[in-house]
Amino acid sequence: MDDIHAPTVASGLSSGIAPRDVSKVSMPDLMQEKERIEAELSALSSVLNSHGVNMNSSLTTFDGFPRDDIDIAQVRTTRVRIIHLRNDHKAVMTHLEKGLHDHFARLQNAPGATSANGTTVPSSAPTSVTDNSIADTGTLGTPFARVNSVEPGSPAHQAGLKMGDSIRGFGSVHWLNHERLSKVAEAVQQNEGRPLTVKVTRKNESGSGTTELDLQLTPRRNWGGRGLLGCHIVPL
């Protein structure tokens, strides 16, 4: 009998669609492709969860027979699609990073480029898009989430977060690496009791214009409510 865990779908995209040459796609289109892939990965993960399995779960019983409590064909096909999408996601992120490096290089080499104090900005080697120094720049300041609600007396409330705030940065998490906010959840869990810088854009009370703020948010328990933050954040 063939290995039940081995994929049966032919190599390449399981949809049969010709792979897209992401090297010729614009930055906005790359971002849309990134979001599309992440949304499909999330949906496929839900398919596996509905069967009570993950990418590594055994599809056979203890004595080597195929499990009869799951749709094995669907699980195997879903796993293959996830593998293809992960590879696609990696390629998109590689080209996004290259595009950002090229953008910064053009800014640094532009004639007459000066710093805030009037001195010439020196050219420097590009850094990774996951680096905090790049996460702090305006280029990576694109909002990726919105504060939907804030509980009174919560860590989020004490930090100054308000409903409607657009989040541009959450610690080292930004629009290129938030992975549908899963990285925000990781940052919260890993920094309990330690302050995180949350960069937000807030509409002015006058109704015209916005204000950009850097808030210090410390995730913690026992504040009188649920969770470590006391706010609800949704992806844009």
Rank of each mutant, 00 (worst) to 15 (best):
residue 1 M to R: 10
residue 3 D to M: 04
residue 3 D to C: 07
residue 5 H to S: 11
residue 6 A to P: 00
residue 8 T to G: 03
residue 15 S to L: 02
residue 15 S to E: 03
residue 16 G to N: 04
residue 17 I to W: 08
residue 19 P to R: 09
residue 26 S to H: 03
residue 28 P to L: 02
residue 32 Q to W: 09
residue 32 Q to Y: 10
residue 34 K to A: 07
residue 41 L to M: 07
residue 41 L to C: 01
residue 44 L to S: 02
residue 51 H to A: 11
residue 51 H to F: 15
residue 51 H to I: 00
residue 52 G to L: 07
residue 52 G to Y: 00
residue 55 M to N: 04
residue 55 M to H: 02
residue 56 N to F: 04
residue 60 T to E: 15
residue 61 T to P: 06
residue 68 D to N: 13
residue 69 D to M: 04
residue 69 D to Y: 02
residue 70 I to W: 03
residue 74 Q to S: 10
residue 75 V to E: 04
residue 80 V to D: 15
residue 84 H to Q: 12
residue 89 H to A: 15
residue 92 V to G: 00
residue 94 T to F: 12
residue 96 L to A: 10
residue 98 K to S: 15
residue 99 G to I: 08
residue 99 G to F: 05
residue 104 F to W: 09
residue 107 L to I: 14
residue 107 L to V: 15
residue 108 Q to K: 06
residue 112 G to C: 01
residue 113 A to H: 12
residue 116 A to F: 10
residue 117 N to F: 09
residue 118 G to M: 03
residue 119 T to W: 09
residue 119 T to F: 11
residue 120 T to D: 10
residue 121 V to F: 04
residue 121 V to Y: 06
residue 125 A to M: 04
residue 128 S to I: 00
residue 128 S to K: 01
residue 128 S to V: 06
residue 133 S to V: 11
residue 134 I to S: 08
residue 137 T to A: 06
residue 138 G to T: 11
residue 145 A to R: 06
residue 147 V to I: 04
residue 149 S to C: 00
residue 150 V to D: 01
residue 153 G to E: 08
residue 155 P to A: 09
residue 158 Q to E: 15
residue 162 K to S: 13
residue 162 K to R: 14
residue 163 M to D: 13
residue 169 G to D: 10
residue 170 F to G: 01
residue 172 S to F: 03
residue 176 L to N: 14
residue 178 H to C: 10
residue 178 H to S: 12
residue 178 H to N: 15
residue 181 L to R: 05
residue 181 L to V: 05
residue 181 L to H: 06
residue 182 S to Q: 14
residue 183 K to V: 12
residue 183 K to Q: 15
residue 186 E to Q: 14
residue 186 E to F: 09
residue 187 A to W: 05
residue 191 N to D: 06
residue 191 N to E: 06
residue 192 E to S: 08
residue 194 R to G: 06
residue 197 T to P: 02
residue 199 K to Y: 14
residue 200 V to D: 04
residue 203 K to C: 03
residue 204 N to E: 14
residue 205 E to M: 04
residue 206 S to A: 12
residue 208 S to F: 13
residue 216 Q to M: 12
residue 217 L to N: 07
residue 218 T to V: 07
residue 221 R to H: 13
residue 223 W to M: 07
residue 224 G to H: 03
residue 226 R to M: 15
residue 227 G to H: 05
residue 227 G to T: 04
residue 227 G to D: 07
residue 229 L to G: 00
residue 229 L to H: 01
residue 231 C to W: 09
residue 232 H to P: 05
residue 234 V to C: 00
residue 235 P to F: 07
residue 235 P to D: 08
